[in-house]
Design a protein around this nucleic acid. Structure first.
Lengths: 400, 400
DNA sequence: AAAACTTTGTTTATCCACTAGACTAACAAG
DNA sequence: CTTGTTAGTCTAGTGGATAAACAAAGTTTT
């Protein structure tokens, strides 16, 4: 927990902090007794008892039967109540919409997916409402019901949750947060797709133990989500991680962004497809995508395999830059390109092993996404869950 | 203030936090009355009075005469006692050693500089001791005396303060922290030169108001210090900011680091000198440096001016990458190359203005160092000061 | 099986720091 | 001099943490 600028410190803050401490302990290590919580957090037994009672009242935890004795009275085991509420996470892609209903532990209870091509905002909005409605209907009965909605979008989101620019959707200055909050009267979080993916991996995926994780969302373009010191870094205005437009070739080819030699001109899905087209790898077929190339590689087509290896190498170049910049514990490659792990990994790790500074390579993991297509949806769900739990920790207002 | 992992929350924490709040308020806005501190922090008048008494006892603040009345009793003005103690900051360069004695507000009271070439570790250590001794002798009488020593070094420092590698000094696995702590029995902080410079600018220089600052230390090599969300980001092991070895030319020239096309092969002082040598800009002179080139440019030598412009352009390429990565409020160019501001600035800002994403350019400042050669020394001094003050906030141990 | 010991969880008394508001001090304006 | 205003201190009250006593429910020893 962190304290904002002009926050004064008083009893409420202390209680809120300790309540979080106890809940986190139970959430991570359940089943666990009050006594164990006390000794492991350093809090007094009495304090723990009282906070546990608060949490029981809120239905955030519950008691199960007695546990094993260790030579004395048998402890009452406490469990985190993952189904005290549910949250909706939406991955709003360029040509797909994926919605999940998740419990408070990130277990996916229900899932809806739709694919489309070049739809208007109105049509996408309708699809979005439909998806949310269906997921809400699918939620089991629970003490807190649906606690929030999160949406990950392929674009620039400012700190107020407004979508400033989503080039591939042709959206500009769109306040989806307000639209959804008014319609559903629930807390809504809008986040960039790469940021959300990073958070998803941190909370529920490959990055659970790490404090410094860089998530490379490699799809049509490349975006990067930064988990630094355990929390998402968003920059001054929320525009961090636009590393797809990092120059890796001075005075290279022009990019539509205005820059030259951008990383995503070398290592994105689009770059791969463009190169394949130039090679004339599908002489008859004008319209092909990543999965077609994947099939070809699986059939042993050497041209296709070399294309992937080349792309893996270029991915490695940018990841090298990432490593030198951030000294992370972990780099996770996610989004659509992660599906080609088999054909990218070798050349990618080769590039890094040969060219990254040696001292950066200790304790460094380079992984492909564990959550596969769910990273973003689970990430925004995680934001909602965290928001909900932090509200639960706050003292209730007493009306007089 | 931030709370560590297993810290429990109790009244000590509350008091510590509020004491910091009050001290910071006085430090930033003095002269200020107790009443104003109370209303501006949101704390109760009584609480402020009691905390102010603590601070007075510690000599960290003092009372001056009464201020202006605003229609009632005249307030007693409180002032931060910048000379309650002094700290020593050392910038240990590749061929120079700069030491300063600073008060708690970063005012330089005394200064010592030495230049050398290729000295052994033992010789540098002797010089370092000599400098520290002289600065300590120069410190005025004060309640807390010398409160710490900070050293900035051109190399990789791990989180424990050990210098793992300083290639230009030919140092490896050197625990200077232990050496100094044993000799002087004072808290010692060892930090990478770029990190220190970034912090110096944040605390006392161009970056005072900003929370996200990237400090580009451009000298023989290029290192980068990252101030993210108001505090220094050091990465998993303390190796962040090695952006001099960021690839900006895929498969470009080999760098001694093992990588190819590194930024510092294009934009560092060394790169500038190498290009000048190739051009034969000084036909007779074999050994020249940055200041010689500067003189030439000032004389209107077109070759030299073009060299600087080229370098500024290359600096811009890397800074572009930095902007897209971090979305900072401010980028500060420091170290030796900052002395050539006049000849670098135009091409540098041109490159950024033309090629950085438009939305990144709002509220973005690109500055050259305000503290000039003192950034690093003041930065490590700032670490010492902060460390001292945070210890002052902690409750005293009562012996029974 | 009784006694002794252990461990769990609750209760009680105490402490500490903050808050509200009364109170005192010092000044300005009429 | 009176009234009103602002500054700073003091006192009583409150909330939450802690330590220690206590009660409950086991296990181990004799």
């Amino acid at each position: 927990m962190k304290i904002g600028m002009n926050q004064t410190w008083n009893h409420h803050v202390v209680k809120e902090g300790n309540k979080s401490l106890v809940l986190d302990k139970i959430k991570n290590d359940y089943p666990i007794s009050r006594a164990a919580v006390a000794s492991q957090t350093g809090l007094n037994k009495g304090t723990v008892s009282s906070l546990v009672n608060d949490l029981l009242e809120d239905h955030l935890i519950f008691e199960s039967g007695p546990g094993e004795s260790s030579g004395g009275r048998r402890p009452v085991m406490l469990l985190f109540n993952g189904t005290a509420g549910y949250t909706i996470g939406i991955d709003l892609g360029v040509n797909y919409l994926l919605g999940i209903l998740s419990d408070l532990e990130g277990n996916v209870v229900s899932q809806k997916e739709a694919r489309y091509k070049k739809m208007s905002y109105e049509a996408i909005e309708a699809k979005l409402f439909e998806t949310i409605d269906e997921l809400m209907a699918a939620a089991p009965e629970s003490p807190h019901g649906i606690v929030g909605i999160g949406v990950g979008v392929p674009g620039i989101v400012d700190k107020g949750g407004e979508i400033l620019l989503a080039p591939n959707l042709n959206w500009k200055n769109l306040n989806l947060k307000n639209v959804l909050e008014e319609k559903y009267d629930l807390p809504v979080i809008i986040e960039n797709e790469a940021n959300a993916g990073a958070y998803g991996e941190k909370k529920f995926g490959a990055g659970k133990e790490c404090e410094n994780i860089i998530y490379v969302s490699a799809g049509i373009g490349i975006g990067v989500g930064l988990i630094l010191n355990g929390s998402l870094y968003k920059g001054a205005n929320g525009f961090s991680g636009e590393m797809g437009h990092m120059t890796i070739q001075v005075d290279g080819l022009k990019c539509r962004c205005g820059n030259q030699g951008c990383w995503e001109l070398f290592a994105s899905e689009q770059a791969l497809i463009d190169r394949a087209e130039k090679m004339g790898i599908f002489p008859e077929q004008a319209d092909f995508d990543l999965s077609d190339l994947l099939k070809l590689a699986e059939q042993g087509n050497e041209q296709a395999i070399e294309l992937f290896e080349q792309t893996g190498d270029y991915l490695g170049v940018g990841i090298n830059n990432i490593i030198n910049t951030f000294n992370p514990q972990q780099v996770i490659i996610g989004n659509r390109m992660a599906t080609s792990k088999e054909w990218l990994e070798k050349s990618l790790t080769n590039r890094v092993a040969n060219q990254a500074l040696w001292f950066q390579q200790n304790d460094l993991q380079i992984n492909f996404s564990e959550l596969s297509t769910l990273s973003t949806a689970l990430g925004v769900a995680a934001f909602s869950i965290e928001n909900f739990l932090s509200v639960c920790m706050q003292p209730k207002l007493v009306l007089r």
